[in-house]
Design a protein around this nucleic acid. Structure first.
Lengths: 203, 203
DNA sequence: TAACATGCATACTGGTCGGTATGAAAGGAC
DNA sequence: GTCCTTTCATACCGACCAGTATGCATGTTA
């Protein structure tokens, strides 16, 4: 029953273990030996599925992280017609969604972005694609909200979306450094207030 | 005339070269050999002035980076009595202050924070001190602005300051990844708008 | 069953890195 | 000048790491 040969499973095991090792230590400091030790997978298997360490990193961005962003931040927006309220709801859920561990390690995408974009152009572009997806998804939601009258028509959807994504990264960054959920809370609270200012003027 | 023996100068040379190497490659990936090669200083000199690589990193945070934050972000606030306007002025100066190179490499403090805080507790605390200095300096300015009637009395100065510092880090982070000044501009523009909302209600 | 590709295991290599051991000049104290 | 400390220079070491060479077992095809 335990498939002694299950390549897809093996690949996935490597991907997920590598994701955690990289999330904890960064890409360059991540040790392939550690990953292998924790999974029981051998070096032969790893280099059978990935040509080198870089390719492993690329796959993590393309397959794991992009998927997380989509599921966590974009999917909920699709079914809502008030993007501001929807976003605020997501922000309020953060304390329950992000465990202490997640605060401690920060945003995987932002970690990789800061570490790798000056070093490796391919890495940078793949990360950039995920950020674009995120920002554009949010911007679309704002545009629709403007049509519905739920969002102030004077704001620039893409610029605003970019700022929000950036702020989120920043909040998680300072929370990571201070190792405190409460700082994360304080920051998201300010972000909530900012979102309120994006509503149409009621006077 | 060329002081063959000038320990203070030697130390400073090492510090600055190390700062640039670390800014470019991150702390862990920074190579001492590279630093030595670029400066002409030898390994003996380096290990005379610093017990190990970590101590070198600590000194960079304590002496160089903390000083940069103070000079760039806190000093101007001291002589102003309208912190919002002052901050907005600083934000508008960013495009002229940050060269392409600085965009590309991102905020030195945030880079170090994300890389080192899960790895080394001493590093984390020293970085945290700089962030605290920054946030508290900004918060003080807001408090005084509240007394002067330049800032809305309903906002929490420290929370707001923390959010702004976080957002700044985030903006510089996405700008670094996208390697574009224009994204930095778009983000700071939104930040400018946010700052406007911190003014007292005029109605 | 024969032939072949896929999936994986083991042992090894070359290179880099942080750190150390040791000693020699330079400079001040006396 | 003598002694001692500071300031550096050179040579070296062990550890670790990404990547490779090689071979074997498993699954697939014919």
């Amino acid at each position: 029953m335990k498939g002694l040969r299950n390549p897809d499973q093996t690949r996935q095991t490597i991907l997920e273990a590598a994701f955690h090792e990289i999330h904890r230590n960064g890409f360059q400091a991540a040790s392939l030996s550690n990953i292998l030790a924790k999974t029981g997978v051998t070096k032969g298997a790893l280099y059978h599925h990935f040509p080198n360490k870089m390719a492993l990193g690329y796959a993590i961005v393309d397959e794991l992280i992009q998927n997380m962003v989509t599921e966590m931040w974009l999917r909920p927006l699709e079914t809502s017609e008030d993007p501001i309220e929807c976003l605020q709801g997501m922000l309020r859920l953060i304390p329950t969604q992000l465990k202490d561990q997640d605060i401690l390690l920060g945003c995987p995408l932002n970690n990789l972005a800061l570490e790798m974009s000056p070093t490796d152009e391919v890495f940078r572009k793949r990360i950039s694609q995920v950020y674009d997806l995120w920002c554009e998804g949010l911007a679309d939601a704002f545009s629709k909200g403007q049509v519905n009258g739920k969002v102030n028509r004077n704001i620039d959807p893409l610029k605003t979306a970019t700022f929000i994504v950036a702020s989120l990264a920043g909040c998680r960054s300072v929370a990571k450094n201070s190792q405190s959920q409460s700082i994360m809370l304080a920051c998201t609270e300010s972000l909530l207030n900012y979102l309120d200012t994006l509503r149409p003027r009621t006077e």
